[in-house]
Amino acid sequence: MSTSVDVSGSEVTTDRRLRRVVTNQQFVLFVVLIALILFFASRNSLFFRVGEFSNLFTDFSGLVLIALAETYVIVAGGIDLAVGSTAAVSGVVAAGWIQPLVNHGVNQAVVLLVGTLACAFIGALAGGLSALLITAFDLVPFVATLVTYSVGAGLALVISHGAPVGYNPGAIYWSASGIGMITWLVAIVLVLAVVLGVVLHLTVYGRYNFAIGSNEFAARAAGIAVRRHLISVYVLAGVLAGLTGMFFYIRSGSGAATTGVTNSANLVAIAAVVIGGASLTGGVGRWAGTMLGAAVLTVVSDGLIFINVPPTWIQVVVGALIAVAALLQSFRRRSRRVT
């Protein structure tokens, strides 16, 4: 008895393997990243310095956690527009809570730890709101997270009165300390990013994430607790956004209601995920792709300032970059259908 399923192309020829590598989104992004760094360095050789790489790593860290949050959500078939304002509201609330500790001269490590927990907590509440609207009230993720976005942005303004909250120069100095081009702050973010990658690609939790985004019915029919998983994903995204709020607090020594809101950090994060090769219809996405997407976006926006390009042009270039990535993706999909 042999219902033979012949999966063609099981013997991969060298030629084919080469083509697969060249059309591989991560490989292309890596080449682009190196090319960008070389280009900026050729325009201003100071780009190739430890100090500048430290800047790049820091800016990368401010983007990567919300980009990975977005990766989880998008792979699960959703979208989260709230990450930027969640960072803002977490930052201003936590800044207000911990300022008395700063004023009393409490050890900075304690202050920042308390702030981090506070931000994670507020982020979890924001993510919980999105999750509630999606799973209990059946709102589509786009609308549900737009609600959370507005609530968060509004609350951040109300709480801060539009002015910076808190004043903690000690946090700024700590944010700049570290070894070589990696500050302690960046190191912590990178470790967290690696953990998120391992969970996404190597664990049962990550597998369910892909299954739900790929075919929600199949996931449910296979006994996966889809609703519970989706709740956890939006809460996780909220927590990561909250931690990003804390990241910016530590970096600037204060919280601001505009953080992550006025620069549409949510869309930048989504752009990083899309550039990284994820599909907005769910089920497809890679940690390495998002990491490289975030790195490319960081290097481009920083590098253009570095070589003194007028600010109006920077947005145009970033927009063009996203368009190219999207085109590349559709080209790749088409070429796969042909083979």
Partner: peptide, 26 residues
């Protein structure tokens, strides 16, 4: 065990992952 009329497979996962969907080997 049920084979559903409307596909019960996750198209973006590998064949192996689909066979074990919901009861992943650890």
């Amino acid at each position: 065990e049920t084979l559903y009329q409307d596909s019960g497979l996750a198209p973006d996962l590998s064949i192996g992952s689909n066979i074990f969907l919901g009861r992943e080997k650890r």
